Amino acid sequence: MSIIFLLVLIFSSTSHSCWVRQPKSATPPTTSSTPPPIPIGDCKCPPLKMYSMNDYISNNEGGKYLKNQQSWNPTIGVDKDLCTFNVQCDPIPGVPNYYTVAFRSNGSPIYVSLKIRKRSLKNKCVQINRVINNKNTFVEQPRYIGSLDCRPHTDGTHQWYFHDYPVFDLGFACVADVHSFKCPIIKIGDKVNFTERDPWARQGSLYISECPDNLYPMLHSTDAYITTGGARKPESGIFEELFCVKVNDTAFAWYFANKQLNSVWFECHSLEEVFGAGSKCVCGAFPQINNRNDLEKYDRKGEYKDVQIGANNWSASCKFNMECEKGYTAVVFSANYDPIILTGNYITCTYNPLSNWLRAWFVNSVRVVNPAGACLLLPQTP
């Protein structure tokens, strides 16, 4: 499957002096040809692809739901001496709200931020943000996360790695976010205190939802409860990844972290009530699957209904590995992605790049919503 990374990166006035800028068209492309890849100096990793053409997006398995959104090329800033780069989506006429979206060919959509070299932080060369009404929704915060880098791959090539997991065919596009008032109305539960963040933005997804003590704001769709991963105050919810997508000329749908939502509510619940587990490292719950009833709640397609469930020799934390007894395999289930079979890589709770106040779970470099883990006795492949 392909993957999208939704990022918003807006640069300060000094950023242009810090990087070699690659040329960018002043207007969105109108042809269906694919622009040439952008090399990163002398870096051995593959050049970055430009995914701005709608037919190119429609062929990306994880990102094709964005094919009807207006898109255009970003600017790539390259450091000639180091394997580092930045991405900037400049505004275009008539589009005050937009994201920067990164695509890849292996994995699901994921929100990430780029690795910025340390001396860039000192010079404040980059901001990471979402753009609403031609303004950053994020404070100025040059941020070094160190989670995306170029390294040797197992096949002898060099590849981009995010959280120690390879990212293939990495590329970017700017994607408009201008349909929020065409999406279905979001209903509000009785306990939720709902505040519009920016009345002038004309953006129907910009809200702060607050709940009484010990309750968490949640998006409730027909098949999922979703928490925001708030680090500053769990009772306050900012859902930066809530995005209205044009399905076709007459239909629009809400998405959150690349998951389509239906019949959306804002509600207040405890994590124990919904997930049977408390918050871990402010990212939210990461419960263990210990029995058949637990598995049925997470195994949406019934792929593992006849598989034996083993003992869980692990507990969730800010960064951990799932340990299983001999012969059993660690599998992570989530609301927004197919089950992930682990092969030794760690699981982490880390920054959501759209806000300093949000965190997110990442598994095999995939941003997962409402994850749960199981140790399963999988059939042996020949």
Rank of each mutant, 00 (worst) to 15 (best):
C318Q: 08
Q308A: 15
D249Q: 08
P74F: 04
P166W: 11
L6Q: 10
H16T: 14
V264C: 00
E210D: 05
V87T: 12
V8L: 11
N68P: 00
N123R: 10
K233Y: 01
K135E: 15
Y346V: 01
I38E: 06
S12R: 09
V366G: 02
V78W: 01
P166Y: 11
E303A: 13
P74Q: 01
K124I: 10
T329N: 14
I40V: 14
V95P: 09
T227H: 14
A176C: 06
Y304F: 15
S270L: 06
Q159L: 11
F85L: 05
P287V: 07
T381K: 12
S279Y: 07
P166Q: 12
N60K: 06
T27Q: 10
K305H: 12
C324I: 01
Y165G: 07
Q69D: 02
S263T: 01
R130G: 05
W160D: 03
N60F: 04
V175P: 06
I38R: 05
C244N: 02
L48D: 04
A173E: 06
G310F: 10
I10N: 15
F172D: 01
G310D: 13
P47W: 07
T75A: 14
I347G: 02
T84V: 11
V368N: 03
N262G: 00
N321D: 12
F11N: 13
L261K: 04
G63L: 07
P23H: 05
S32I: 14
G278N: 15
L342Q: 13
L376K: 09
G94L: 08
A253C: 03
G237Y: 03
C45D: 03
N336G: 07
F252M: 03
K49D: 05
W361F: 13
Y111E: 09
C83K: 03
A311N: 14
T250L: 06
G344V: 01
F138C: 11
N136T: 14
S180R: 03
A285E: 07
H158E: 05
E323L: 09
P234V: 00
F168Q: 08
I76E: 04
C83A: 11
A277I: 06
D306P: 04
G276P: 07
N352I: 02
N214C: 01
V112A: 14
N136K: 10
Q288L: 10
T227N: 14
C268M: 06
A360L: 01
L48S: 02
D306H: 13
K259A: 12
D155C: 07
P93W: 00
I10A: 13
N54I: 05
E210W: 00
G77S: 09
G204Q: 02
A102M: 12
E240C: 02
Q260D: 04
Y255F: 15
I57H: 08
N248Y: 00
N345R: 13
Y144P: 00
C18M: 08
